[in-house]
């Protein structure tokens, strides 16, 4: 990549995450639909299931999902410099916003209008996160086994630390694939060769999730 081309990519990484960051209310999951939109559809940097992999990895290392996943994607696209560009991009807007809010906090602290706005905003954040689950679920659920792992994972999270659940999920993947191979089933690793993907997706809609 030429010097100029590299700087262009780095700036695009910075700018992409700079735009996404202000929407990451309530943790990094709310930014998944935007990452899909910018990174997969618009820039075509990654495939949808690669983004899901990035979120799996971001969950399994310490730190915030939003920062980790941006850094991962940056690293994937432009190495160490890309990681830095994406990380600064995702951190700078929230840094400025939280500082500003902190400074004016004592003025708005008891403003009932702000409080009531946030009651409604929090419900919308739940909707954005649910939308993220639907988007990720589309690439994650490729057959009945993956759907079972998904459903089993939710109650298990009540008792186990997320990192333990992630390790259990990886083991479940290895065990399921090896059993399927031994029994002689054909194993589909991802969505590429499936035509009926919308059908598998119905249970999510039925559950209202």
């Amino acid at each position: 990549m030429s010097m100029k081309g590299q700087w262009k990519t780095l700036f695009q990484l910075f700018w992409t995450f700079f735009k996404i960051a202000p929407v990451t209310f309530g943790g990094g999951f709310a930014m998944i639909p935007l990452i899909e939109n910018e990174v997969v559809e618009k820039r075509k940097w990654m495939k949808s299931e690669e983004v899901t992999n990035v979120f799996a990895l971001s969950q399994s290392v310490p730190g915030a999902v939003a920062i980790n996943s941006a850094t991962f994607i940056g690293h994937r696209i432009a190495g160490m410099k890309g990681a830095m560009a994406a990380m600064i991009g995702v951190s700078l807007p929230t840094f400025l916003i939280v500082l500003l809010l902190g400074i004016v906090y004592f003025f708005i602290q008891d403003n009932p209008k702000i409080e009531s706005a946030f009651i409604s905003i929090r419900a919308s954040i739940v909707a954005i996160i649910a939308y993220a689950a639907i988007k990720i679920g589309k690439t994650a659920v490729v057959d009945k086994s993956t759907f079972c792992i998904l459903i089993a994972g939710i109650p298990v999270l009540l008792f186990l630390h997320p990192v333990m659940v992630i390790i259990a999920g990886a083991l479940a993947g290895i065990v399921t694939i090896s059993i399927k191979r031994k029994l002689g089933y054909e194993v589909k690793m991802d969505k590429k060769d499936r035509k009926t993907e919308e059908n598998d997706f119905e249970p999510f809609m039925g559950a209202g999730i």
Partner: peptide, 14 residues
């Protein structure tokens, strides 16, 4: 194979 199991788990987390 790990990611085959990890992707649904990430969905559960979300």
């Amino acid at each position: 194979s790990m990611f085959y199991g990890l992707r649904p788990i990430v969905t559960s987390l979300i």
